[in-house]
Structure formats: structure tokens, C-alpha cells
Write a protein that binds this DNA or RNA. Sequence first.
DNA 1: GTCCATTTGTTCGTATGTATT
DNA 2: TAATACATACGAACAAATGGA
Lengths: 263, 263
Amino acid sequence: MPTRPDRRDPLPLWAQVQRDITARIQRGEFDDVFPGELHLVEEYAVSRHTVREALRALRADGLLDAGRGRPTRVAPAPITATQGVLYSLFSAAEDAGHTQRSIVLALDARADGVIARRLGLEESTPLVHLERLRLLDDAPLALDRVWLPARIAAPLLEADFTRTSLYAELDARCGVRLTGGHEQVRAVIAREREQRLLELPVDPADPAGRASVALLHLERVGELRGQPIEWRQTVIRGDRFALDTDLSSPDRITARPVGGSPR
Amino acid sequence: MPTRPDRRDPLPLWAQVQRDITARIQRGEFDDVFPGELHLVEEYAVSRHTVREALRALRADGLLDAGRGRPTRVAPAPITATQGVLYSLFSAAEDAGHTQRSIVLALDARADGVIARRLGLEESTPLVHLERLRLLDDAPLALDRVWLPARIAAPLLEADFTRTSLYAELDARCGVRLTGGHEQVRAVIAREREQRLLELPVDPADPAGRASVALLHLERVGELRGQPIEWRQTVIRGDRFALDTDLSSPDRITARPVGGSPR
DNA sequence: GTCCATTTGTTCGTATGTATT
DNA sequence: TAATACATACGAACAAATGGA
């Protein structure tokens, strides 16, 4: 069910073909086999050169996996695609030989109008809610809250999140792997509950008992084929966490646990 | 003086043409004008398609700047190698139409044993020290301190940093462009001086007058051919700044100014 | 400001090479 | 080995944008 390109469309033919193939990939139309170039030439009624131009763009976007002599296939959703800062942090901790553990503070199904709307759902839609205190070498590192639609994530309610990761369980129990999303990192002051749970040191010169370390506030929206299905909020102790950028390879950033305050 | 491609070479013709053009660019042969596609067709005795394939690769590598209707040109050497989060922030602000300005709080030469040692220098080595309050649309955004060896950076003492960037001046006045380095981002609580300079809002429930927003603390070491020559420390208002990651293109991170607190 | 020559971008057609299954 | 599919390469024509006359 291809949509043929239209010469009156200001977009070049190859870009129209690219757009249509992208849509078909996202509909899962090519999960079994991807058609050959000549087949696409007939479907779209354009020249092979035009088809190849579209396929070139799709490969550049990482949607296709092609090679000489073998059939092209839809590239499997890379697991790396949905890692981000949070994954980077806990994976770096693992590599450095730290032990990780979580205390599950909440795991239930509930309705939350605010979160549901952020996920583009009805306010009354039931959501699975998971709240964990994440420990690094048995010391509190982060407070992690995540919401997912119960329709998809209900099987998670029986999982034990003391050791395993959310995304591993989501894959194993729900058969779902995120395909995209975005993360945002900001700095915030700890609230009282966070201060208590994260065992933040208190400034002795401050009679009100304010914490002497700040938090990194990570907000994440995970998507499945363009639909947001995860809303996550994590606060991390600022004295135990850093983002690193190597300027020789710009745009690369890694997160890692650190000790002490930077000043 | 082109080297014609050879069919016995296992490399595709377009790749041979690409290789030769790259060499010619590096010899400075095209600093004035870059030849048109048809001219290259004659020089290399290949089809226009082959030439275009080579040019496509060269553009992808960022060596050429081409566009419909205008002559292709050799792309100027990119400054991008040493940008990082800070550059990303101020460049994003520029793109979004914000105005940027700095108040220079200090610009002098001094010795600082701690910093000097971090740069691998003798403790008594004179350093150029620049401290700026950076304003975004005339509102304080960041407090920025940087130290460089005076041997290299002495000409900066006569620069006006109200509008121009450090790296532009470093290039223009000292003939130096950083070749590498690394940045680290953490979250910290504002000190009193920072609180005052950045005009941080104060928590009304806190009698001690603690600020109600946290800071992102950015530490940067810039290198010139492997030697650290810049040590920089910037604190940024956490309510006006965010790091964004698009999970579809992992490792890419951008910084941008934002409004309000995330919660 | 308009027109025109130049230059790159797009699109068609065709043929052959080469790696994989 | 043979069939298949992508990669490379040639040729030709028109479209669209630019920049200068």
C-alpha cells in the first residue's frame, strides 16, 4: 500500500518516497521482508535512481540495513537508541565495579491526570507507577519515578525491581522496546522528602536544615514508534554524579559516579 | 594537476576522485575557486555521476560547501572541534534570537598555585584570569571564570569581553585554537557571592536566605596539542538552563536556555 | 529590477560489476 | 552454480536557484 509520489508536490520525488517508506516501516509493514529496489521502482512508478536516492537517505537515518548481494532489511531498533544519560550512569557504575541495588518505594497501578496527559492519554487512563531509591554501594544515589500505561506495562506489577532494570523487564515481560524519546537534565534544590530519602548532608550553618548539595533533575519521555509511553523523573545527588564530555569527539557525553563535591 | 582514477585500482572511481580532491584541497589548490562539476568531469575523465558521488562524500565529510545555483566552495576549517556544552548553550541562545552580553568582573594577570598546577605549570607561573557575569536578555544566566597561561594569553588583557567570545579572541589575538579537552557538569548549591551576582530568588520559607534554585557547575580543561592551557569554571542558573538528549541519536547532547523551574 | 548564463539538484534510462544466499 | 540484490558507472535532459550583466 504505497502512496505514489506526486510531481506537483514541491518535495523531490526521492524525498516523497523516503517519507512514504518511513511511514510504512513504522506501521511494521516490512518487518518480515523489505522489498528489493526494482520492486519499489514498480510500486512507486519512479526510476531506480530515485528509489536508491530515497534508500540512501533511509540508510543514513539508520532505518535500513543494506549490503551488496543480500536483501535489504529494516534495521532492528538499536538498544543504544534509548539509553541516554541515565543508562550511561548506571552502566558506568557497573563497569567501575560498584554494586547497584534499589529499594522499591512504590509499585502499583493508579490514575494520574497530569502524567496521563503528558503521555497523550485520557486523564483516567490507568498507569503503572514505579518509584525506587537507587543505591550505589549501599549509599543513596538517586530517586527514580516512572509512569507507563497499564495497558502495556501491567505485567511489570509482578516484577522485582530490586536488581533488574526497567527496560530489561519491559522487554522480557511486555515485549516492548522503546524506539526513541528525549531526556532533559537540569539542576534543582532538594525537597524535604528527597533530602531525607537521599540522606543529604545538612548545612550546619543553616538553621532551617537545608541540604548542602544540589540535585540533578532528569526528565525523560520514552517513545514507542513515535508514541510517548514512558514518563520518568529522576533526581540524582549532585555530589555523586557528573556528566563528562570529551571535546575531541564533540556531542559525545557520558555520565559517571564521582565522589565529593567539585569545590 | 589532477591524478586520473585507475580502473585497475580496487577502489571505486568515485572514491579515487574523492581521495585526489581531498589531497588537492589540503594543498590549498582550491582556496580561491572550486571547479564546477563539469570541469571535474573533464579533468578526471569520468561521468558527472561519478564526480557527484565523490562530491557527495566530500560534503558529508564537511570539506565542501555546495548549493543549488551557486559555485561550490571549500568549507572553512570548522571551529567545532572544541565546542562542548557551554558553546552549545550560547549558540542555541543566539539561534533562538536571545541577546547575549557579559559584565567583565575581572581581567588581569595573576599567579594562582592551585590553578597553575592543574594546568601542569609551576605554581608561580603568571596566568590571565577572566571573570564574567553572562547575561541572557539582560538577566543573569551564568558566572564564568577562566584561567590561561599568560605566556600564551597575554594579548587577551586588552580585549573587550562584553560581547565577544573567549575563543574568538584567543584565535584573533593569540593565534591559538584549542585542539581538545574535556568538560564536566555537576549540580551544586549557590554560594553567597554567586547567589547575589546571579540574582537568585530566595526561598521565603528559609530564614537564612538560601536560594531556591540550584546551579549547574561546569568545569572545563581546554588543551592545545595535548597540553592543558585553559582551566575554566562556570556556574549556570539551574532554572534557566537544560541539557537535552534526543534518544534517537544517542551521544548527541545539546544545551539550551529554558524558562522556569522543572517542577 | 529584470534578464540571462552558470551551477548544482533532480530524474529518467541503461549496462555491468560483485557480494551473498 | 545460479539467482538475487545492491554497488558502480555511463549518458542525457530538465528544473531550480544563484549571481552578475
